[in-house]
Design a protein around this nucleic acid. Sequence first.
DNA 1: CAAGATTGATCTGTCAATCTTC
DNA 2: GAAGATTGACAGATCAATCTTG
Lengths: 168, 168
Amino acid sequence: MARTAGQRSTQRLTNSVRWLNHREEAAWRAFALAMAKLRDTLESQLERDADLSFIEYHSLARLSDEPDHTLRMSELAAVTNASLSRLSHLVSRMEARGLIRREPDPTDGRFTIAILTNAGYTKLLESAPGHVATVRALVIDEFSAAELQELRGFSERMLARIETFTRD
Amino acid sequence: MARTAGQRSTQRLTNSVRWLNHREEAAWRAFALAMAKLRDTLESQLERDADLSFIEYHSLARLSDEPDHTLRMSELAAVTNASLSRLSHLVSRMEARGLIRREPDPTDGRFTIAILTNAGYTKLLESAPGHVATVRALVIDEFSAAELQELRGFSERMLARIETFTRD
DNA sequence: CAAGATTGATCTGTCAATCTTC
DNA sequence: GAAGATTGACAGATCAATCTTG
C-alpha cells in the first residue's frame, strides 16, 4: 500500500512534534555513536585477525551452538538477524571457502540445512579468543555484574519496543 | 605491517581465554541484538518515509547544526563517523539529488566545503519529525530521565574504551 | 499456491591508488 | 611531500523476481 509524502506511520496527525530536549539528545547521540563505533571496531578486529565479518563469525558460532552443528537456512537467518537472501549469498561464499556446506533437508526438501564443516569449526575455535577478548576489552570488563544486568535490562526493554514497532 | 595468524593484538600471550560466563553472555547477546535491530529499524523507517539512509539523514542534520549550513568534507566525515571515501561517494549521490552541493574552500583550496542546499534543508525538515518520533518510540520514551543519563554514562564509558583500544 | 531458498541486477561501502593544493 | 579529497575496481547487501518442494 503506497504512502503519500504527508502520511508517515510514525508521525502524529497534529503537527506538534515532541523534539528531544538537551539531555535526551545528548544521551541519544552518545548511545548512537557507541553503537556505531562498537560495531566498526568488532568488524575490523575480526576482519583483520580472522578474515571474517561479524555476521560470518556469528554464523559459525550459532551453528556450533547446535549439538549437530546444523541449522536450517531460515533458522540461521533468524538467529543471525539476517535476511534469507543476504544469508544465502553469504553462505555461498563461506561454502566456497569450505567453512559451511549445505544439503537439502532429508525430512522435507523445501528446507536447506547449513552444516558447520570441520574447517569451519576450526576457524571458529581459532578466532573466538581474539573476538571474546575484544568484547571484554570494549564492553564487559568496563562494567560490574550489576551494571551488566542493567545493560541487559535496558537492551531487552528496547527490543520489546522494537518488536511492537515493527509489528505495526 | 603484516600479522601472522598466531599473533593477535587482542589475545593474551598465554593460551588461557577468559570466556564469558552465562550472565555476561546473556547481557552481551541482548545488547548486540538490540544494537542491530535498532539500527535496522531506524534505517527502514528513514528509507521508507524519507528515501534517506541513516547516514544521509545525519549528513543533512549535522550540516543544519552549523550557522552557515556548511562543513568541510573531513569535518562532516568526522561527525557522521564515516570514512572520507565513503562520504565522498555519498555526497556525490546527494549532490546529484540536489540536497548538498560542494565548493572548494576559498581560504584554502585543499579543503572542500559541503553546503546544505535549500532542497536539502527542506528534506531534513520534512523527515525529522518521523525520525525523532521513531527514536522516541524505540528508545527515549521507554526510559526515565535518570535511566537515560545512565544509558548515556554507559555509552560514554564504552566510547572511552573503544578510543583506547583503537589507538593501539 | 505457499513457504523456503536462490539468483541476478543494482546500489552502497571499502580499499588502494591517484590527484590537488599548499 | 603531506593532508584533504576523489576515483575506480571490487566486495557485500538489498530488492524484486524466480525456482522448488510439498
